[in-house]
Design a protein around this nucleic acid. Structure first.
Length: 482
RNA sequence: GCCGCCAUAGUCUAAUGGUUAGGACGCUUGCCUCUCACGCAGGUAUCAGGGGUUCAAAUCCCCUUGGCGGUGCCA
């Protein structure tokens, strides 16, 4: 049995969106599940689309995701170089193009743009008519010698069986007469995807080609090329698209489908990886939360879906909250700290705030909105109607009394949580209120928010005596006229 | 236009001819509780439509509809 080798072969367009990452993930999972090798190859044959630094983004994203590259441009390997522009410079594609031409699988084409355009039919579809295939060897040699611009085209035979088996979609059968003689080498000497991809997959001993479904119906062309060269065909695993909604696919054009954007929003990498693994693949059992090693363990091709799936950030958010809860207090504090500081609440006890936030945070960027009242209390309007609570039968008048009593009695307690936990109920009891009434009014007074990450005891403890008193005095003013 | 692929709740999915159509997110009810959240226990909602085949169809076949992809000197 041949050792499994899979590859992720992105073109360096500047960033990794979730769909690309998922393709990389599945290729990685498949390789690792089968004790194989996962490699990265950069497909930068389109000079116009090349973006500087794109390779770094790809490495960074895969590294953050936990996907380890066995061979690639930055870490090397026995099949290099792993960047197609370098391979082109080395003359690899030129050499194999010549070989394919000799074997009858390709030919030189000298057709001008004008001639090509004249081939356009009434639907705006252009099909090449194999015009240059009919050129004699002498004519071709003369054209070449005269320095005419040319491309190399694949020679797709007519009436040829093309059926192949895809591991996800099953048997795919396309009439070879519907296949066009694609360009293999552009007039600038660079190979197209159609050629470089096949040559490199063969040269790099790729056993399983895992890629997007957009190649499903052009794969017969590639197979014909393998056949013409006399090479062994790889196994194909085509992946359905990830959609933004029912009709639009997820793309960088729609904004935040970008891995690094999600990280910046406070998603944990393992949650993102876990979620996208589930988009288009499902495990045998009903357990959805899986670490990367568990994904490797459970991955199998028959769990791959044939229909496209819509990206649902809501579910990723939920999954993220599961991972957040699993964090230790220290880990969470460390991750939450930048978001807490961002909200200007850093004058208060950071680890105390983080502790309150831990079970209430789904994604880290929720944090500023959860704790804005800590630092921005005096910038916020105080709404005295917040004191009205039906369950506890409180209103502004009750609040006025309770807050006044609190100020009279506060010197009898320390402002740590243990002391407050005893003090507040005793205050209620002493003056004939329900515990909840006191707690509600006090909490509202010091936070100006209907809901807060913690109750009255926690809020007072966090703010401390001086600040708490100051805030209660302010709140009291808002009900002074009652 | 032509070719190919796909079709289970709002979303991700399970089911491989016989299930009260299972799970998860969401939404929702209740419990817990000093708010919110967490947690726990419930609830809600699905086989695109029409024909076949069969004792029996979400499942197999055909058609329709809808969506997507390909048809580039993009990948």
């Amino acid at each position: 049995m041949k050792k499994v080798r899979t590859r992720f072969a992105p073109s360096p367009t500047g960033f990794m969106h979730i769909g690309n990452l998922r393709t990389a993930l599945y290729a990685y999972l498949y390789a690792k599940k089968n004790d194989g090798t996962f490699l990265l190859r950069i497909e930068d044959t389109d000079k116009e689309r090349f973006v500087d630094g794109a390779v770094d983004v790809i490495y960074r994203t895969l590294k953050t995701s936990g996907i380890e590259i066995d061979e690639g441009p930055l870490n090397g390997g026995a099949y290099g170089p792993y960047i197609q522009s370098l391979r082109s410079d080395a003359g690899i594609y030129r050499k194999y193009a010549d070989e394919l031409i000799k074997k009858g699988g390709a030919y030189h084409c000298f057709c001008t743009k004008e001639r090509l355009e004249s081939l356009t039919d009434k639907n705006g579809i252009r099909t090449y008519d194999k015009h240059c295939l009919k050129l004699s060897a002498e004519e071709t040699a003369k054209n070449l010698k005269d320095g005419l611009a040319y491309v190399v085209r694949q020679n797709i035979p007519k009436d040829t069986p093309t059926a192949y088996d895809d591991l996800v979609f099953g048997k795919i059968n396309i009439d070879s007469n519907d296949l066009e003689d694609n360009i293999l080498i552009k007039s600038d000497g660079m190979p197209t995807y159609n050629f470089a991809n096949v040559v490199d997959d063969h040269l790099m001993d790729i056993t399983h080609v895992i890629r997007g479904v957009e190649y499903l119906s052009s794969t017969p062309k590639y197979n014909l090329m393998y056949d013409a060269f006399g090479w062994e065909r790889p196994v194909y695993i085509h992946l359905q698209l990830i959609m933004k909604d029912a009709t639009r696919k997820l793309s960088k054009r729609y904004g935040d489908a970008n891995f690094e954007d999600f990280i910046a929003k406070g998603y944990l990498p393992q949650a993102i990886v876990n979620y996208i693994a589930l988009l288009g693949w499902s495990p045998k059992d009903n357990v959805e939360k899986m670490s990367l090693p568990e994904l490797i363990e459970n991955f199998s091709v028959d769990g791959l879906s044939r229909s496209s799936s819509i990206f649902d950030e809501n579910k990723m958010r939920w999954l993220n909250s599961q991972y957040v809860k699993e964090l230790t207090q220290e880990e969470f504090t460390c991750l939450a700290a930048p978001f807490i500081r961002h909200s200007k609440a850093s004058a208060f006890d950071l680890s105390k705030i983080a502790a309150l936030l831990h079970t209430r945070t789904e994604i880290l960027s929720d944090i500023p909105g959860l704790i804005d009242f800590i630092a921005e209390y005096y910038d916020m309007d105080f709404d005295p109607t917040l004191f009205v609570n039906q369950k506890w039968k409180t209103d502004q008048a009750v609040a006025k009394k309770i807050l006044s009593l609190f100020l009279e009695e506060e010197k009898n307690t320390e402002f740590d949580e243990e002391a407050l936990h005893a003090f507040l109920p005793s205050l209620a009891e002493k003056y004939g209120y329900k515990k909840g009434q006191v707690l509600w009014c006090v909490r509202i007074a010091v936070t100006a928010r209907a809901s807060t990450p913690g109750g009255a005891v926690e809020m007072l403890g966090l703010l401390g005596r001086e600040e708490s008193v100051k805030r209660i005095e302010r709140a009291l003013k808002s009900v002074a006229h009652i």
